[in-house]
């Protein structure tokens, strides 16, 4: 097992770092007081990103009746959430689209799961919240919550039978079994990846606690709220079977979170139906 732990750390070190533009945009989009001009200043120097932003904005997904040629107009139109999707997509989509054999995920399934969680988290935000979580930050947290699976996949495949045996013989959550067998779980490793990418610590914490919200001992109400939203969104998307692998539904839902966020069956069904339609349209854009 020790050799594998070293592999995990090596795998993280070998991950391509995020481009400076991406890191800068995440911090800008995470701050509600950021102006459009500040965002434009960063994007316009990145030709690849500019092309992508215009392409997505003019795709059938948004169904605009006229073509948008100005970056300013496109950024305003897309808004923080969609912009974050494009920015992170450039760096992470290829990685998330890969099959994860150890986890039993076919090509595209981890992308489908991660993007669905990002969309669901945004839809679960209470519209009357006086201090709303910035949409770009929430979207990024959702998109990256399972990134640790990419790193752990090979180690999981190598220990498949042991994991399978423990799944049958115990009733523990899947991430606890990962820790027992591999030494790390995908949520632990996800936190390490985000820190390696120099993303805000609060995003790394969301990764770490998305299956164990009660273990977060920090005092930051924004982290607490982000963890709640990603925990609910992940639970919904797993229930719907979007990108579910060998871990299946072996995760606990923390009902205290439903209570404090007033989550009802009706809300779950409503958001679930909306998420599925959005994810199917997005899949079309990225396959164009």
């Amino acid at each position: 097992m020790k050799a594998e732990l070293i592999d995990v750390v090596d795998n993280i070190q070998n991950l391509r770092v995020l481009p400076a533009t991406t890191v800068r945009l995440i911090s800008l989009l995470s701050d509600p007081s950021t102006s459009i001009d500040e965002i434009l200043k960063v994007i316009q120097y990145d030709q690849n990103l500019t092309i992508q932003v215009l392409k997505i904005c003019n795709s059938a997904y948004f169904g605009l009746t006229r073509k948008i040629n100005s970056l300013r107009e496109a950024v305003i139109y897309l808004g923080a959430k969609n912009l974050m999707n494009v920015v992170m997509g450039l760096h992470c989509n290829a990685m998330l689209q890969q099959p994860q054999k150890g986890y039993g995920l076919l090509p595209g399934m981890l992308w489908r799961h991660s993007t669905a969680v990002a969309i669901a988290a945004d839809k679960l935000v209470d519209k009357n919240d006086k201090n709303p979580t910035p949409a770009g930050l929430l979207f990024t947290a959702g998109l990256l919550h399972d990134i640790g699976k990419v790193i752990l996949d090979q180690a999981l495949a190598n220990n498949y039978l042991e994991i399978l045996e423990k799944l049958e013989s115990t009733s523990k959550q899947f991430n606890e079994l990962e820790r027992e067998v591999l030494g790390y779980s995908h949520d632990d490793v996800g936190e390490m990846v985000l820190l390696h990418w120099q993303l805000p610590e609060m995003l790394a914490s969301v990764c770490r606690y998305h299956h164990d919200p009660d273990k977060y001992e920090g005092q930051d109400p924004q982290v607490r709220h982000l963890v709640d939203l990603v925990h609910m969104a992940d639970s919904l998307v797993i229930s719907l079977g979007l990108g579910v692998g060998i871990d299946g539904l072996r995760y606990e839902f923390n009902s205290a979170i439903a209570e404090r966020n007033k989550l009802t069956h009706e809300k779950i069904d409503q958001v679930g139906s909306e998420v599925l339609l959005e994810i199917k349209s997005l899949e079309q854009i990225y396959q164009e």
């Binding site: 009733s171 919904l236 229930s239 719907l240 539904l249 009902s255 069956h265 779950i268």
Partner: peptide, 18 residues
Amino acid sequence: AGAAQLMDAKGIFNIGKR
């Protein structure tokens, strides 16, 4: 086939059962 469920004692996510 289907109707699986999360480990969710209070049944908030009882979509499968419903």
